[in-house]
Nucleic acid binder design. Sequence first.
RNA 1: GCGGGUGGUCGGAUGAUCGCGGGGGGGGUAACCCUUCGAGGAAAGUCCGGACUCCAUGAAAAGCACGGUGCUGGUUAACGGCCAGCGGGGGUAACCCUAGGGAUAGCGCCACAGAGAACAGACCGCCUGCUAUAUGCAGGUAAGGGUGAAACGGUGAGGUAAGAGCUCACCGCGGAUGUGGCAACACAGACGGCACGGCAAGCCCCACCGGGAGCAAUGCCAAAUAGGGGCUUCGUGUGGGCAACCACAGGGACGCUUGAACCCGAGAAGCCCGGGUUGGCAGCUAGAGGCCAGUUGGUAACAGCUGGUCCAGAUGAAUGAUCAUCUCGGGGUCUUCGGGCCCUAGACAGAAUCCGGCUUACAGGCCACCCGCGCAA
RNA 2: GGUCCGUUCGUCUAUCGGUUAGGACGUCAGGUUUUCAACCUGAAAAGACGGGUUCGACUCCCGUACGGACUG
Length: 130
Amino acid sequence: MESEPADQMDGPPAVFACPKLETLTKRADFVRASNARRQGTPGIHLQARKRAETEPSGIRVGYTCSKKVGNAVARNRAKRRLREIARLVLSTEGRDGWDYVLVGRKDVTANLSFTNLEQDLRRALKKVHA
RNA sequence: GCGGGUGGUCGGAUGAUCGCGGGGGGGGUAACCCUUCGAGGAAAGUCCGGACUCCAUGAAAAGCACGGUGCUGGUUAACGGCCAGCGGGGGUAACCCUAGGGAUAGCGCCACAGAGAACAGACCGCCUGCUAUAUGCAGGUAAGGGUGAAACGGUGAGGUAAGAGCUCACCGCGGAUGUGGCAACACAGACGGCACGGCAAGCCCCACCGGGAGCAAUGCCAAAUAGGGGCUUCGUGUGGGCAACCACAGGGACGCUUGAACCCGAGAAGCCCGGGUUGGCAGCUAGAGGCCAGUUGGUAACAGCUGGUCCAGAUGAAUGAUCAUCUCGGGGUCUUCGGGCCCUAGACAGAAUCCGGCUUACAGGCCACCCGCGCAA
RNA sequence: GGUCCGUUCGUCUAUCGGUUAGGACGUCAGGUUUUCAACCUGAAAAGACGGGUUCGACUCCCGUACGGACUG
């Protein structure tokens, strides 16, 4: 939102080379993403949506772990692992102007090995972008 | 050595790289850099008690209703917690459990079985008398039988027509009074002569405690929404009519146009109700504070003093990922019984205003004291 | 986060501390029918879990588990 006057004045190219990840906080954004494209894998469930042109740019990510995932410890652990793979994968493979929502799965998201979880997200991203 | 009891304690460590939340500093002040802090014994359940904030009440307080607590004494900011003691129950013992006031203030209940279930009463019996020598009638009795969770003292002896606390001894029960103890209570006990069943985690009575709501409390800022509804007052396009109302003009009439029928009646002030928003800031983390050491009082809980040390503040919600080494356990395997090799950090669980407790969950380890049995001396 | 409520056959529900825990729908078996449906007869099937009070607990008390509602 503040970046538009900034690139009119200076236009630092580094901002677009590596877009910063923003976190989704509004329930409406989550609902819109879940109504768009979705892709399931053994480790995670991905929901994604390309925002309209009028909305601001940048990659936005949300994380969802319902009570089905387990107790508070299991939910927080699943969310932390989702955050970690999102940081690794989406900063290079995410597309500008998209919203991504990563949904945790019972038992699997918290226990699957990290490399497998990472591959799951890459596979899901390819299918969603296609 | 084996088995058990009580109390306490730990809940992996170190390092590397990348990353996250808060505070402070720098900076071209939303980037970025430096620095520092960053989950638990239960953070949990929300079962109690407070702090704090708002509301209510004339300041405090009292009373009614409702709810809670319930042996005694102490402790505390407070408690249903804790400590010490008493009574009752369990265990060979160490020790453990215990809502444990009042049943003569009143009401209620005690199914089934049984003769009888609460001001006692008499089915089978036993005994006496009468009669027609009976399976009849009248009376006495409560020893014995049977039922039940519970049957109106128990055993023995005397006594009697048969019996009975009718009498006696012992036991049980009640108990004036005395002694010890702050008290709960304990011990002794003249005397009574058996009278007084149980349930109050049934209603209730007594004593004591509690005003209500909760940080999503509460205060502030910004934005947004209907130009919303009701009542009161003032007032209400043009014409007619005292007025209700009628005609004309105006607005609406649901995707759009038209508008015959249909609907609305400007505006201002006050009060009440309703509606919209779900952003930010404060509250918000140092307090009856925790821990350690020493010391004073106290059996102890705890309290006082001195010194040191520690202290998360998020809000789609911060502690993660990858790896290495080391140990604690566990598993597998080999064994010359010394040990070697391989795999594996592995329980319950994540702060949400804060504090004191309780309860519940918990892989496994460690420490101290105590009890029983066995062995040795 | 806070406040509050509930748990009984597969499902919906009833219950005065004394029952073999009642009813409806569903299920199963038999009858009826050429067969199915409907109907008739019968059967199986429950007190969330753990303690306590009581002679006796689905009921009363305490704790735990699970489920639900409200709250800006």
